[in-house]
Design a protein around this nucleic acid. Structure first.
Lengths: 317, 317
DNA sequence: CTGAAAGCGCTAACAC
DNA sequence: GTGTTAGCGCTTTCAG
């Protein structure tokens, strides 16, 4: 493959001149510029991006740390990131971790070894203390709120959102409210859910909280457990619309009326929830992803809150 | 940031020696190796990956060209790619195109400028003639079958799969069968669907084919059109389980019985289909993604067919 | 076993 | 305007 020297030689100019026309610098005579361009076209030359990155000390490439890619919520976040990256001519690397702290650290390491200019953490299993040191090597933005001044945040105010959702259910007269979460107490958002629940309803009956819910199937399983309880919940708050759909499905199979016998509300306004007319709280994850991206490339450490919307459809009327 | 020279100086050795210990070469005395390692640890040194890539002329990074990321099918493919990339210590870049030929070419260009060692094309809007020239710069693998000897393929035999599905419906006594596709005639898989349909049922009643279906909502819309037809279809083949779910939903709302009044079969064995007990044809997209990845890193031009499974559940019994 | 030196392909002072 | 030259940070002959 031809390199910049070949072009220079063939065009009868120096490499600087070639570099200048490549980078659209002013102060290149029209004649030389044309000559160089002709040779570039003739030889079908493209500058080696790795060499450019090496000398520029920047890659215009960012990484997105995410536990899974086959998950609606993370997919929305990624979608937001990708939206903006395309517009701003950045490139994005997906760094799947399955919540393995080791793999997360590997991702952060790419900041240190210059593969990446910045990183977006959509969810994590490392402590902030393990993560923060890497800010020395590049910008790190999280999709959750943290006090750490070195970390920019594009986040939804989960606590308030959960609080409002539970409060609404309470206001509708529900006192037996069950809920599901994606992970256990090690997760930030599970903790916020628990806290909000306690704030509204007091102590949590252990059987009202089911962990590790991701899919419609998980929703079905959760419903199986809840709906045969003596103190059957009259409302459930699912951690996603797919899970909510599973619950709905099982409730239907038991001939229960929704919302009369069981009110259901999910999260993230996913297609399935629209189809089933399930209420949901939309945390606008696409927007969060877009915002996170913008923070990264601005090297900003701002804390930007993205608003949420509670969308009431038939399942909680 | 420290570089290899700093380490060499401080350890009192040459850069070659440092490089040797970095790359675990034999023939380094234990004493020097230890000295170098100590300095590396002390200074918290990490080799600059960009410099390494430049000289090695390889990045261990591959790109995945995909129209959308917020789509179950492409997400499965990506998932497969990611699975294997993690195992084999490769890194993956997502290249979203929205079927813009220009953006696709941009992605391929990253092969030429050395940003990527290989590319997986999950779907495309360029012609092969526009794509093939890029094989000169790196490995290109497609997730569809093509004759081009320069292109490796990890593909599902869509034609046979569609054929078998339509045939099964015919065998069950259906003669009025409608179907949806994701795109129009410009798409390879739409064309195969049409061809298979014609093979089994002959001419296609235009109203039986609805394009641009992606979500549950699209399924609802499709059902609205089909189910009020005079010649109402007795079976539908949807191009995805979400779409199938939308159709199911609308059929329910019309008090139709599934499968008695309407048989429904979808594609890709997605969670929603499992929940709703919808039949589906599983093209094993995760496996396709994994296989595609393997082909790329082996620089293989093989054509590997991934088998499909028709999974009959309640909606076509 | 170890080091000197020649690049990889490019950018950016710095002179002219 | 244009060319010379010194790197960016690393790997890899090639001597010794």
């Amino acid at each position: 493959m031809a390199n910049i020297n070949d072009i220079a030689k063939r065009a009868g100019v120096s490499v600087s001149t070639v570099s200048r026309v490549l980078n659209h610098h002013p102060y290149v005579s029209e004649s030389k510029r044309a000559a160089v361009q002709r040779v570039i076209d003739e030889m079908d030359y493209t500058p080696n991006r790795v060499a450019v990155d090496l000398i520029r000390k920047e890659t215009r490439r960012i990484g997105v740390i995410m536990p899974y890619n086959n998950n609606q919520a993370f997919d929305q976040l990624l979608h937001g990131v990708l939206n903006r990256s395309v517009e701003l001519d950045y490139t994005v690397m997906v760094l799947p971790t399955k919540y393995d702290p080791e793999k997360e650290l590997n991702g952060l390491h790419m900041l240190k070894n210059k593969q990446l200019d910045g990183i977006i953490i959509t969810s994590r299993s490392n402590t902030w203390d393990a993560i923060v040191p890497f800010t020395k090597y590049g910008t790190i933005v999280a999709c959750e709120y943290t006090e750490h001044p070195e970390i920019g945040c594009a986040y939804m105010d989960r606590y308030t959102s959960y609080l409002e959702t539970f409060q609404r259910l309470k206001d509708k007269g529900h006192s037996r409210v069950a809920f599901s979460t994606a992970r256990g107490e090690e997760s930030n958002s599970t903790q916020l859910t628990l806290k909000a629940y306690q704030q509204v309803f007091g102590e949590i009956p252990p059987e009202y909280h089911i962990r590790d819910c991701h899919s419609m199937d998980d929703g079905v399983r959760a419903a199986q457990q809840w709906l045969h309880l003596d103190a059957r919940p009259t409302a459930v708050y699912a951690n996603g619309d797919e899970v909510a759909a599973g619950i709905y499905q099982y409730a239907m199979s038991m001939q229960l009326e929704v919302p009369e016998d069981l009110a259901i509300i999910g999260q993230e306004n996913q297609p399935i929830g629209i189809g089933l007319q399930l209420s949901t709280v939309d945390h606008q994850l696409v927007k969060v992803g877009e915002q996170a991206f913008d923070l990264v490339i601005e090297k900003s450490k701002d804390k930007v809150e993205i608003s949420y919307h509670i969308i009431e459809r038939q399942s909680t009327q």
